[in-house]
Structures are given as C-alpha cells and as structure tokens.
Simulated assay, not measured.
Amino acid sequence: MFNLLWGAAFVLVNFMFFLLCYRLFGKKGLYAWIGVATVLANIQVTKTIDLLGITTTLGNTMYVSMYMASDLLNEKYGPKEARKAVWFGFFTLIMTTITMQMVLLFQPTATDFAQTPMQQLFGLLPRLALASLTAYAVSQLLDVRLYAWIRKFFPKRHQLWIRGNGSTMISSFIDTLIFCSIAFYGYAWGIWLELLFTTYILKFVLTAAGTPVLYIARNFRFIEEEGQTLKP
C-alpha cells in the first residue's frame, strides 16, 4: 500500500514539475524536459518495485511525460517542432551513455566510494540505452505522426484528449514491446510477460491521468510567442 500511495505522490510531483518547467521556460522548457526525462527514465527503470503484488519497474512516469511534452509541442507548435524535440532526447541519451561509460573506465582511488554503485547503475546503461534508443525513436516518431493524423479527424480544441490519448496509448505499447524485448531478453517468459503487461498498464493509466495536465499546459501563453503562425 505504501508504494501505491507514494507512487501517486510521485506522479503528482512529476506532473507539477512538468507544468512548472513549461510555465517558466516555454517551448525551450519542453525541449529541456524531454532531454532530462530521457536520462532519468533510463536510470529509474533499473529499479523494480512491488505494486499491489505485481512486479514492475520505475521510469514509467518519466516516459509518459515525454509523450506529453511531444504532444504539447505538436498541439501548439506543429509536428516539425515535436520531431525536433524527439531527436534532441535521442541525442541526450546517446551523450549520457557514452560519457558515463568513459567515466567508469577511470581508475578510482583507494578511498573512492562511488565506483561500485556507479558501476552497478550505469554499467547496465548500454543495454538499457540500446533498448531505449530503439524503442524511443520508433515510438516517439510514431506518436508525432499519429497525433497529426488523428488531429485531421478530431481537430476541435476540446478533442485534445482524443488526440493525446489515442496517439500515446498506441505508440507507448510499441515502446513497451520493443524495450522489454531488448532490455529483458533472456528473462523467464512469465517474468517478461508480467513486466510487459504491468509496464504498459501503468503507462496507460498515467497517460489518462496526464490528460488534465495537457489541458492546463495548453492554456499557458507567452508574450514572445504571441502572433506567431503555427504550422499544422
């Protein structure tokens, strides 16, 4: 029960930071959020927790917030800006993976305490990064296309929830399937299936929970952006 209650608080805090990042920094804040969230999600996913008797990984909130950011960019600034943000996140993860692997190769001093925990945490990053990079690139670019496609049929302002949930729930399943297939390759079939199922269900729930956040964020206005023509 503690994990469930603490998880709800964790989601709330993450969504509040998402809104604050956009409110304070505008479009640039969404780019920054995607970059940071990409890295944090891949660190958090190394931790497994028990949630109502089911084993699942952390990182799902951050993954969903990346979809929220790209959908918001798509909604307010067009698919070109959304795709640019996706590639920025892709670059950020590659940069983090390479630099942290170089950090691990430095010989620590006899009094160093960080090498072992860093090795345990970031030593997994190449495999996780391969899984994430593949899943991220495929699913996020798919999400941008799906959002723009769904928008043709549901273009009205109040139909944001259809565009956002429709594109994200499809693309996040692809993301989860690719990630679990690579990151957890070799695991017992039952464990792999459980991780796949629980991870996607959590993303599904979090996507729905994040919908009001998107409606709030869409109403933010920035002086420097007023009068700009947004390309569909």
Score class of each variant (00 low, 15 high):
27 K>M: 05
28 K>E: 14
28 K>H: 14
29 G>C: 10
29 G>W: 10
29 G>M: 13
29 G>L: 09
29 G>T: 14
29 G>N: 12
29 G>Y: 12
30 L>Y: 08
30 L>K: 12
30 L>E: 08
30 L>G: 13
30 L>N: 14
31 Y>G: 09
31 Y>C: 05
32 A>D: 05
32 A>C: 10
32 A>S: 12
32 A>I: 09
33 W>C: 08
33 W>N: 09
34 I>L: 14
34 I>Y: 02
34 I>G: 00
34 I>D: 00
35 G>E: 08
35 G>P: 08
35 G>S: 13
35 G>N: 06
35 G>I: 11
36 V>G: 02
36 V>W: 07
36 V>H: 06
36 V>L: 10
37 A>K: 06
37 A>Q: 08
37 A>P: 09
37 A>N: 12
38 T>W: 02
38 T>C: 07
38 T>V: 06
38 T>P: 05
38 T>F: 00
39 V>I: 13
39 V>S: 03
39 V>G: 03
39 V>K: 10
39 V>Q: 10
39 V>R: 08
40 L>Y: 01
40 L>P: 00
40 L>E: 00
40 L>A: 01
41 A>M: 15
41 A>C: 10
41 A>L: 05
42 N>E: 06
42 N>T: 02
42 N>D: 02
42 N>R: 04
43 I>K: 07
43 I>C: 10
43 I>Y: 13
43 I>M: 13
44 Q>G: 00
44 Q>Y: 13
44 Q>L: 07
45 V>I: 15
45 V>P: 14
45 V>Q: 12
45 V>R: 11
45 V>T: 14
45 V>A: 07
46 T>F: 07
46 T>S: 15
46 T>A: 11
47 K>T: 03
47 K>V: 02
48 T>P: 01
48 T>S: 09
48 T>Y: 08
49 I>G: 07
49 I>M: 05
49 I>N: 13
50 D>R: 11
50 D>I: 05
50 D>E: 15
51 L>F: 15
51 L>C: 10
52 L>H: 08
53 G>P: 04
54 I>S: 14
54 I>L: 15
54 I>M: 15
54 I>W: 15
54 I>Y: 15
54 I>N: 15
54 I>V: 15
55 T>Q: 11
55 T>N: 11
55 T>H: 11
55 T>W: 00
55 T>V: 04
56 T>W: 03
56 T>V: 01
56 T>E: 01
56 T>Q: 00
56 T>H: 02
57 T>P: 04
57 T>E: 06
57 T>N: 09
57 T>Y: 01
57 T>R: 09
58 L>K: 01
58 L>G: 01
58 L>Q: 09
59 G>W: 10
59 G>M: 05
59 G>N: 06
59 G>E: 02
59 G>Y: 12
60 N>Y: 12
60 N>K: 03
60 N>I: 08
60 N>W: 05
61 T>G: 14
61 T>K: 05
61 T>P: 00
62 M>G: 11
62 M>P: 01
